[in-house]
Amino acid sequence: MQRKPILFVDVDGVISLWGFVQDDPPPGAYASVDGILHFLSATAGEHLLALREHFDLVWCTGWKDRANDYLPHALGLPEPLPWLEFGAPAERTAHWKLDAVTTYAQDRPAAWIDDAFDESCHAWAAERGAPTLLVATEPPTGLQAAHADALRAWAAALPRTG
């Protein structure tokens, strides 16, 4: 049986939006997370639900396991997701999430949606032996239909194995 590719999902700037004009917010609502207000996208949940058909979703966020305390219910996801534990990067020049992403992904195809990629992320993606896609979001709007469409198209174009 063929395994689905992994989709690493950041939260801040992807699901929890910020930096938008307060008088003209995107669709969404404020939610209290550990006493801190976060503006959660009204559409991110439906996009993630649809992407579950094509990907194994994994939280890739500083929220770590707390993402499961708040987000599945708020986004309409049917169950908690696996999540990454981050340590200090092995290289001081590497993005702080790269070691955990690399370890979890191993040799599986992987996509990663985040608002804060740097050059080390792009170099990692280009050098990986498995198919890899980085999808950058903008914090005021987060995960949009165009991002979800690009992710589905990428997953559909992967070579079939198994």
Rank of each mutant, 00 (worst) to 15 (best):
M1S: 14
M1Y: 06
R3G: 11
R3N: 13
K4F: 12
K4M: 06
P5A: 04
I6F: 13
L7W: 07
F8K: 05
F8D: 02
G13W: 03
I15G: 01
S16C: 07
L17G: 07
G19Y: 06
G19N: 02
F20G: 06
V21N: 14
D23T: 14
D23N: 12
D23S: 15
D24T: 12
P25M: 03
P27S: 05
Y30E: 11
Y30K: 03
A31C: 06
V33W: 07
V33K: 01
G35P: 07
G35A: 08
L37P: 13
H38C: 10
F39H: 03
L40S: 11
L40G: 05
T43G: 00
H47F: 08
L49C: 12
R52D: 02
E53I: 00
E53R: 15
H54L: 00
H54F: 13
D56C: 04
D56P: 00
V58A: 07
C60F: 01
C60V: 05
C60Q: 02
G62A: 08
W63G: 09
K64E: 15
R66A: 14
N68M: 05
N68R: 11
P72M: 09
L77G: 05
P78V: 09
P80N: 05
L81Q: 05
L81A: 01
P82D: 14
P82L: 03
W83F: 15
L84E: 02
F86R: 14
A88G: 04
P89K: 13
A90L: 12
A90T: 15
R92S: 15
R92A: 15
R92P: 10
T93N: 11
A94E: 07
H95Q: 10
W96H: 11
W96S: 09
K97D: 00
K97S: 11
D99F: 07
A100D: 03
A100K: 05
A100L: 03
T102W: 09
T103D: 14
Y104M: 11
A105P: 07
A105C: 11
Q106T: 10
P109A: 15
A110P: 04
A111D: 08
W112T: 03
W112R: 09
W112K: 09
W112C: 04
I113S: 03
I113G: 02
I113K: 04
A116Y: 02
F117K: 05
F117N: 01
D118I: 08
D118E: 13
D118A: 12
E119R: 13
S120A: 14
C121F: 08
H122E: 12
H122L: 12
H122V: 13
A123S: 10
A123I: 15
W124C: 08
E127I: 01
R128Q: 11
R128I: 03
G129N: 09
P131M: 05
T132W: 08
V135G: 07
V135L: 15
V135T: 13
T137L: 05
E138G: 03
E138T: 15
P139T: 02
P140R: 09
T141L: 09
G142H: 06
L143C: 02
Q144A: 14
A145W: 04
A145S: 10
A145G: 03
H147Q: 08
A148C: 04
A150F: 03
L151N: 08
A153Y: 03
A155K: 08
A156K: 13
A157N: 10
A157C: 03
L158M: 01
P159H: 06
P159A: 14
